[in-house]
Design a protein around this nucleic acid. Structure first.
Lengths: 233, 233
DNA sequence: ACCAGCAGCTTGTATATACAACCTAGCTAT
DNA sequence: ATAGCTAGGTTGTATATACAAGCTGCTGGT
């Protein structure tokens, strides 16, 4: 068989919610009703409901029933936002200066995680993002050529690399490493800050369904940037 | 009623892993073996395993078996972790040096957000956390006296402030600001690093149901600490 | 020597059933 | 009238069973 039956039931339930037929807190059919409706056993219907409860889409109350969950409970935990959006949301002008946009061959030691032939040139970009003409982010990026063929042809003064990559390869996950570093000579010059100034460095690996899309290193002058994070327990 | 049987099995599996009896990638007993061992049906054993797979503790391969997952795959979405746990999980010794543990009155400019009478002294602590005798975190904290009355009586060489606060006031949310700073004279001396070394500074406000519990400033030497974060889309 | 295929293990899906725990509406006895 | 009980719904746990799907090693035939 193709898709398991409990998946069909999950899709049906999600559809009702997404299309607005079942608003927040609306009661969902009981496990027995779903079982009858889809001609499956209660255990199968229950599994569909259980997985949606696990995902936070539904909530169950023993003895009462199952209900559509609050939508706000689904917000992502950490908002590492798009730099251009962030600048614009502060009402300032964003623009980008492209320092390099080339192909490059990964050195032997690079563990980039792209599933490509050894020796295939990677796409590489180096960009400074400016807020009202003041540098706020130095972005160095390696891109998987198999997943973003037209990367080098983009005009990154109009669209950010991150925005472009999202449009061609929908993200499924991202890992970040945040650390404090002292700016080296090149970084200091490009960000127009003093040598050895403290900077926030975010190393980000983004993945889509088909594999690792890109690896980016984002460097922010410590004096000009703060990263906000919110957690709910 | 006692604890459900599948929970007992989960606890047993977790214990084996935590105590190091089952290293990464080690095979876990099959569902049938677990069922026999605990005298339950296979479906019950399977449920225990399934929930640990869902949590990322185990991985399953159809036709082969179930294995202990990579430990790195278990990291929570945003790992701003308890420093003592983190040090211990690296197999190193944690200990703390208490620099100050007093009451203090908030200056007019302090926007601490505690819902208390003006002029009430706040609890304040200043602690250095050491990993194998090397300082890795400087923690400065203001605590709401209304929500943690016995705070000043704790022995913070045995329990971290964060652990203690969690035990008296369960957290409901936390906000963080992450930034890069240059160490000032006092910070440099307490962390035994050079003046103006880059440091990661995490400012954290934690809240429980009854209000803001504490405000902490955590400073890590940039050369000794990285913060990991993972996002799923 | 080699390889095809099968036997026997694993996990994955699905069913029918039973009883426990919990909630609520409505009825009954005081 | 109201307090309390009960009947019948809900979800929660657990069992025994069956077959499908995927991996691996052994065995038998060429």
């Amino acid at each position: 068989m193709s898709t398991p039956r409990f998946v069909v039931i999950k899709q049906h339930l999600l559809k009702q919610i997404e299309q607005g037929h079942w608003p927040e807190h609306a009661p969902v059919p009981s496990e027995n009703e779903l079982a009858e409706q889809f001609a499956v056993s209660r255990m199968t219907a229950r599994r569909a409901v259980s997985e949606l409860v696990e995902q936070g889409v539904l909530v169950r109350q023993q003895g009462k029933g199952t209900y559509v969950a609050d939508h706000r409970a689904q917000t992502p935990m950490l908002a590492i936002r798009n730099i251009a959006d962030e600048i614009r949301s502060r009402g300032n002008r964003w623009h980008a200066k492209v320092l390099a946009l080339t192909g490059t061959v990964a050195s032997n030691g690079d563990a980039v995680g792209f599933a490509i032939e050894p020796g295939t040139p990677l796409f590489r970009s180096q960009i400074v993002h400016l807020e009202d003409d003041r540098p706020v982010q130095l972005e160095q990026r390696l891109v998987n050529p198999a997943l973003a063929e037209d990367y080098l042809a983009q005009d990154f003064t109009q669209i950010t690399p991150h925005e472009y990559l999202c449009s061609v390869a929908p993200l499924t996950a991202a890992d970040h490493i945040v650390e404090a570093i002292a700016a080296n000579a090149e970084q200091a010059q490009q960000l127009q800050i003093a040598l050895h100034s403290p900077c926030l460095k975010i190393s980000r690996q983004t993945r889509s369904r088909s594999g690792v899309v890109s690896i980016a290193s984002l460097i922010y002058p410590g004096s000009r940037y703060r990263l906000g994070a919110h957690l709910d327990f």
